[in-house]
Amino acid sequence: MSDTQRKRRILVAKPGLDGHDRGAKVVARALADAGHEVVYTGLHQTPTMIATAAVQEAVDAVGLSIMSGAHMTLFPAVIEALKKQGAEDVVVFGGGIIPDEDVVELLANGVAKIFKPGASTQEIGQWVTDNVSVQD
C-alpha cells in the first residue's frame, strides 16, 4: 500500500535589480499549469535568499528569470549559494536575453537549460516535466 504522491516543486525567482517580473510570473503560471508546485519569491532576490528559500522549500529545481544582463554573475552565484547550503542537487535553469556564447558557457558550468525569450510556456512546462526528476 503506497499512497506516496511525489510532485515536482520548483522555485521561480527573479534575481538582480531590474524592475518587473512579468516574465517570471508567466513562467510560474506555466509550470503550475503543467501540474507542478511553484514557489514564487518575486523580485530583487539575492543568490543567498534564493538558495535559502530553495532549501527550506525542498524544491527540485530553481528557475531564474534574468533580463538585466547580469546572467554571467547571477547564475554562478546562485549555483554557488546552493552548493554552500548542501543543495547542489537542485536543478538550475532559466531564461532571459542571453547571447549564444554566454549560453554555451553557462550550460558548461552547471546551468541545465536556458530558454530564449520566445520560448513557449508549454515548452518550458514540458522541459521541466521531462528533465527535472523528483528526488528520493
Partner: peptide
C-alpha cells in the same frame, strides 16, 4: 484542473 499550484505567500 492541473494539480499544480502557485505558492505566493512567501513573497
Amino acid at each position: 484542473f492541473s494539480g499544480g499550484a502557485i505558492l505566493g505567500d512567501r513573497i
